[in-house]
Design a protein around this nucleic acid. Sequence first.
DNA 1: CTATGAACCTGCAAGC
DNA 2: TGCTTGCAGGTTCATA
Length: 323
Amino acid sequence: MPELPEVEVVRSGLERHLRGSLIESVEVLDPRSLRRDPEGPERFAAALSGRVLADVARRGKYVWLILADPSAPASALAAGEVGERGVVVHLGMSGQALIKEPDAARERHLRIRMRLLTPDGAVRDLRFVDQRIFGGMFLDPLVPAADGAPGASLSALALPLLPASVSHIGRDPLDAHFDAAAFRRRLRRTSSGIKRVLLDQTVLSGIGNIYADESLWRARLHYAKPADSLTAAQADAILHASTEVMTEALAAGGTSFDALYINVNGESGYFERGLNVYGRAGKQCPRCAELPVPGVIVREPFMNRSSYRCPRCQRAPRGFRAG
DNA sequence: CTATGAACCTGCAAGC
DNA sequence: TGCTTGCAGGTTCATA
């Protein structure tokens, strides 16, 4: 469910609540949420209990909690002295990371609970709630970023590290070290449809089905247009559009269609009203609305899901056949 | 290497 | 009132 803006809303909320907090205990209520953890629930809980959280970082749709170095003094936190592992959190389609009072009612899909002691002495829960269990948590070693730049798109400590299992994920468009020239070169190397490329998290990360469609609408491009047929200007237009739409969505607290996507305090974002095509089949294209014959948004099957576009603004490439 | 498809899950809405 | 089908903000792995 969540794409970059929604995940960043969660990351910044976690950072605000978790930096410097002590993990007192960990309770794994459903081991399926630790499917990707190599050592299993008991060792996961044991490894985290008693540790302090130094930072919360993100690349694309992946978030990770960085553990403080247990042998370093508290003053080392600010200097970026951190432990060797991070706790990766991926929300999948329906995951939530919530900060709650410990006695708050148990959520229906609560999967993992961490009891925390905050630096100012409060006791809080970090709760991982996930209806569909496509997301999860796992412990992962931190490794140097390939380019030596900070491994995360955003975090307080600009560490040149990231979890090993996130290292294949490309930088996201909001990352200060995103390489636009490399992105243009990558597009020229493939004849895949542009939306397929935008959804490939190794090319650039953070874009999912909503923001792919919204970016393509803003750039007036059809999802099936071969990447290697795009001009440099069109490639830049996509990059500009995706950066713009995700920045706007982030400012609005993300996109929420229902109670599934919420921030760490349980609040919904309001960017749904900023969407121009996604989920709007049968409605007029906002850009065509003033024309004599306005375009009407269509929904088309694409990669076992849906694509939304305006047939007037986003013409099919030559020889394109739907389905 | 690229490109599909299936698998992993639960819940909700629409249609019969 | 059921029951069935389709659909949902994602990723990974297996098969052509």
